[in-house]
Each structure stands twice: as C-alpha cells, then as structure tokens.
C-alpha cells in the first residue's frame, strides 16, 4: 500500500481542504490581519506536502505536476511584475497603487487597499508552487550505485520501474 496508514489517510482527506482554504483566507485578508501571500503560500504548499506524505508522491503529482507547479511559479512572478508595471501606466510610478487611488474602499474592508491583494495572490502562487517543487525535487532524488561502481542520480519513480 502506498503512503501511510488508513488513519493518516482519512484524517488527511478531511483536513486537506481546510488547510487549503486557510491558506487562501490568509492571503486575501493579508492586508488586514497577520498573514499575506508568503504565509498563505506556505500553508497551501503544506497542504500538498501533506498529501504527498499521506498518499505517496504519485497521488500528489497527479493533482499538481512539477511542470504545472513551475508554470504557476513563473506566472506568479510575472503577475506581480505586470501589476507593478501597470502602476506606471495608470499611476505614473512603478509600484503605484493605482487601484486605491481610483476606488478607495472603506477602512478595514476587504476591498480597501487597491493592488495589495493582487500582489498577495501573486506571491501566493510563487511561494506555494516553488515550495512544493523544492520539497518534491529534494525528496524524489535517490542516488543509485550502477553496476560499474559509478553513482548516478535518478528520480525514485524511475528506479521502481526498472
């Protein structure tokens, strides 16, 4: 049986959604309470890491493959940069908060800080995807001794197929 015991699997099945939602909550209210994109991204990456631990890597990678994760990773950065550059277009200055200047919300409301939630979402994409990538890549590699004594690094999945 891949992964951990039934208890862990069942608990994971119940908990994973809440962890994921908590990450999203931290991100979108990041400008009001402690949290923000980085904390949210770490929490979301943790939910995937929990899946990896409980069900095995294949299950987690079926949900979010490494390629897809690095696409999220790069697009997070690009989103951040595009919003920052839009600041030049609309506000005249790099990183200008042009949305707040136009639509000033009520203080302490969810939509009150213009572009900051967008930055938080971009950071969430970046941090979540890259942390998951780092975890999987560092955990997946195994060093195998070849027949002629030389050492080679392979992904663990490949070795099992041999």
């Amino acid at each position: 049986m891949k992964g951990m015991t039934l208890i862990v699997k069942t608990v994971t099945r119940w908990v994973k959604v809440f962890i994921f939602l908590y990450g999203i909550y931290l991100t979108i209210t990041g400008h009001l309470t402690p949290g923000g994109g980085f904390a949210g991204g770490v929490v979301i990456a943790c939910s995937y890491i929990l899946l990896t631990l409980a069900y095995g890597r294949e299950f987690a990678l079926k949900n979010l493959s490494l390629g897809k994760a690095s696409v999220f990773d790069s697009s997070g950065v690009l989103l951040f940069l595009i919003v920052a550059l839009l600041g030049i277009g609309f506000g005249g200055i790099f990183f200008a908060n042009f949305l707040q200047a136009r639509y000033p919300g009520e203080e302490f409301a969810l939509f009150s800080s213009g572009t900051i939630p967008i930055y938080n979402i971009a950071i969430l994409l970046k941090v979540g995807a890259s942390l998951f990538n780092v975890f999987v890549i560092l955990s997946i590699l195994r060093i195998v001794v070849e027949k002629d004594g030389s050492k080679k690094m392979v992904a663990e999945g490949d070795r099992e197929e041999e």
């Binding site: 890549i137 560092l138 060093i143 050492k151 080679k152 690094m153």
Partner: peptide, 16 residues
C-alpha cells in the same frame, strides 16, 4: 539553504 542542500546532494552523487 535550498540551493546549498541541492549542491550537497549533487556533491554526494559525484564524490560519494
């Protein structure tokens, strides 16, 4: 740290 650990793994692969 991540980069350092990755380099450590690679070093172990090369030097054993």
């Amino acid at each position: 740290t991540t980069l350092a650990i990755a380099i450590c793994i690679r070093l172990y692969e090369k030097y054993g």
